[in-house]
Amino acid sequence: MDRIISLFSSSALLLFILVVQNTSSVYGNAEGDALYALKKQLKDPNNVLQSWDPTLVNPCTWYHVTCNNYNSVTRVELGNAGLSGQLVSQLGQLSNLQYLEMYGNNITGIIPNAIGNLTNLVSLDLYLNRLHGRIPTALGNLQKLRYLRLNNNILTGTIPFSLTTITTLQVLDVSSNRLRGYVPRNGSFAFFTPRSFANNPNLEFPPDAPVAPAPAPLSS
């Protein structure tokens, strides 16, 4: 009887290990698949994404990708990489992503609503591209976000009020777009100056909103 129990326990332990390993592998592949979907939508004349090999167990060895101790992607750094093409909704599968940096490229299309699924995101830097369409209301789900820079694109529509609920937001820049309507002044937006919203000809401050005074001239 003891031998049977021992064999059963050993089999159960082996099965558990196999399940855990398989789950880890699938999780890693899911993130790799998401990033590979992005690669397929981008033109990469400088071969910046050459190391993004979808046959690997996970993308943690790829250049411009950083992972945590659990082999989950936490950072994607593709600023000033000469990329063009579009973002993909699969990016929303990177559940532990903290930094998405794709500034200074020639990326077109819209900002996918699925970016709002990245609830661990600390920094979203998509400035200096050619993104158009609205700023997704779903970005209000990013309650850990500190830096949101979407300036120098072709974004239209109004600024979502959902963004004002992000109490951690320290830096906001939506300047040099084609936004319209009133600038929200509640929540975290009460602390941002007109510089964050400049060069949007159809964007206005509410009549009762305080406007930051011009800086005093430097004394000679």
Results as ranks from 00 to 15, higher is better:
residue 179 L to M: 09
residue 179 L to P: 11
residue 180 R to A: 08
residue 180 R to D: 01
residue 180 R to C: 01
residue 180 R to Y: 01
residue 180 R to N: 07
residue 180 R to W: 00
residue 181 G to W: 06
residue 181 G to H: 12
residue 181 G to A: 12
residue 181 G to T: 10
residue 182 Y to G: 06
residue 182 Y to E: 15
residue 182 Y to I: 07
residue 182 Y to N: 15
residue 182 Y to D: 13
residue 183 V to L: 02
residue 183 V to S: 02
residue 183 V to E: 06
residue 183 V to W: 05
residue 183 V to F: 02
residue 184 P to S: 01
residue 184 P to N: 08
residue 184 P to F: 01
residue 185 R to M: 08
residue 185 R to E: 04
residue 185 R to N: 01
residue 186 N to D: 13
residue 186 N to Q: 10
residue 187 G to Q: 01
residue 187 G to S: 10
residue 187 G to T: 02
residue 187 G to V: 10
residue 187 G to E: 05
residue 187 G to L: 01
residue 188 S to Q: 02
residue 188 S to M: 01
residue 188 S to R: 02
residue 189 F to C: 07
residue 189 F to D: 08
residue 189 F to Y: 11
residue 190 A to R: 14
residue 190 A to W: 06
residue 190 A to K: 14
residue 190 A to S: 14
residue 190 A to P: 01
residue 190 A to D: 01
residue 190 A to G: 14
residue 191 F to D: 14
residue 191 F to Y: 15
residue 191 F to S: 15
residue 191 F to I: 13
residue 192 F to N: 13
residue 192 F to A: 14
residue 192 F to G: 15
residue 192 F to Q: 06
residue 192 F to P: 13
residue 192 F to K: 08
residue 192 F to L: 09
residue 193 T to Q: 07
residue 193 T to Y: 05
residue 194 P to I: 07
residue 194 P to M: 13
residue 195 R to A: 04
residue 195 R to L: 11
residue 195 R to G: 08
residue 196 S to L: 09
residue 196 S to A: 15
residue 197 F to C: 07
residue 197 F to D: 09
residue 198 A to E: 09
residue 198 A to L: 08
residue 198 A to G: 02
residue 198 A to K: 09
residue 199 N to R: 01
residue 199 N to M: 03
residue 199 N to C: 02
residue 200 N to W: 06
residue 200 N to I: 06
residue 200 N to G: 01
residue 201 P to N: 05
residue 201 P to K: 08
residue 201 P to C: 07
residue 203 L to C: 04
residue 203 L to W: 03
residue 203 L to I: 02
residue 203 L to P: 09
residue 203 L to E: 04
residue 204 E to K: 03
residue 204 E to I: 00
residue 204 E to G: 00
residue 205 F to R: 12
residue 205 F to A: 12
residue 205 F to L: 15
residue 205 F to S: 15
residue 205 F to C: 12
residue 206 P to R: 11
residue 206 P to E: 15
residue 206 P to L: 14
residue 207 P to M: 02
residue 207 P to C: 08
residue 208 D to P: 00
residue 208 D to R: 04
residue 208 D to S: 11
residue 208 D to T: 09
residue 208 D to F: 07
residue 208 D to K: 09
residue 208 D to L: 05
residue 209 A to T: 09
residue 209 A to K: 09
residue 209 A to H: 05
residue 209 A to Q: 12
residue 210 P to C: 05
residue 211 V to R: 05
residue 211 V to L: 12
residue 211 V to G: 00
residue 211 V to H: 01
residue 212 A to C: 03
residue 212 A to V: 12
residue 213 P to I: 07
residue 213 P to E: 11
residue 213 P to H: 10
residue 213 P to T: 11
residue 214 A to H: 07
residue 214 A to P: 14
residue 216 A to I: 07
residue 216 A to T: 03
